[in-house]
């Protein structure tokens, strides 16, 4: 099976006041379809930068990034926007929903940028919301939803474009443990449904949901291991 994502010798250096910060300093990583990967590491280890890199929000200073055979490191802003729109679904720690828009509208937004007609958009957005169990709350605004429900809207938004990969950055970080469990349940379900998921976390028990854990340290991958006793959310 072809690689979904291939990072070769990826470096990302920032110039901060004349001093070069090596946020990523030579990362090699191959991600296959339907993998469930967690990225861990202390603050400043480069996990956010790696996440942004994989999510095509950032481009490497050096190195080769291939996403489904497309050369991401050579893309311009518009091409990056397009690949984010079509192939990547983001789930953020702070949900990042549009506060004054309904759940349905929030899920619709990626499809707007994909140039879909209104009827198609609403249809797809509804399917996505149903898949995260929010059919009853579609017309509620984020402030009328609980934290867990908000994150489920965010997951629906990430899913709605049928992306190749879902990037979840501390998806349970702002949630109570019960809601956190619900969210992990949904992510697990998405993985068993064939989705590729990358999870950034610093909680061991969250990372244990994944099949594979990557530890970053000083911009380099220190550990890349299969998870042996995978934690399952009791259903």
């Amino acid at each position: 099976m072809a690689d979904l994502i291939s990072l070769k010798e990826i470096k990302r250096h920032y110039d901060v006041g004349g001093e070069v910060v090596r946020a990523l300093d030579g990362v090699d990583l191959i991600i296959n379809p339907n993998e469930y990967i967690s990225i861990m590491g202390p603050s400043g280890s480069g996990k956010s930068t790696l996440m942004n890199m994989i999510g095509c929000l950032d481009t490497p200073t050096e190195g080769i990034y291939e996403f489904e055979g497309e050369l991401v490191h050579k893309m311009d802003d518009n091409q990056l926007a397009s690949i984010r729109n079509r192939k990547i679904g983001f789930v953020f720690q702070t949900f990042n929903l549009l506060p004054k828009a309904t759940a349905l509208r929030n899920v619709e937004v990626p499809l707007i940028y994909a140039n879909m007609t209104k009827n198609d958009r609403i249809e797809k957005a509804k399917i996505a919301l149903i898949s995260v169990g929010l059919e009853e709350r579609m017309h509620h605004k984020p402030n009328e939803l609980s934290g867990g429900q908000r994150q489920r809207v965010a997951i629906a938004r990430a899913l709605v474009n049928d992306p190749s990969i879902i990037l979840a950055d501390e998806p349970t970080g702002n949630l109570d443990s019960k809601s956190g469990v619900e969210i992990m349940k949904i992510l697990d379900k998405l993985h068993s449904g064939g989705n590729t998921i990358i999870l950034v976390t610093h909680e061991e028990y969250i990372a244990d949901h994944a099949d594979r854990t990557i530890h970053l340290f000083d911009g380099k991958i220190k550990v890349d291991k299969k998870v042996t006793k995978k934690r399952q959310v009791s259903t």
Partner: peptide, 13 residues
Amino acid sequence: IGVRKAIGATKRD
């Protein structure tokens, strides 16, 4: 704006 860009908005959008 950041969120919109992350989910695929181009500069022109």
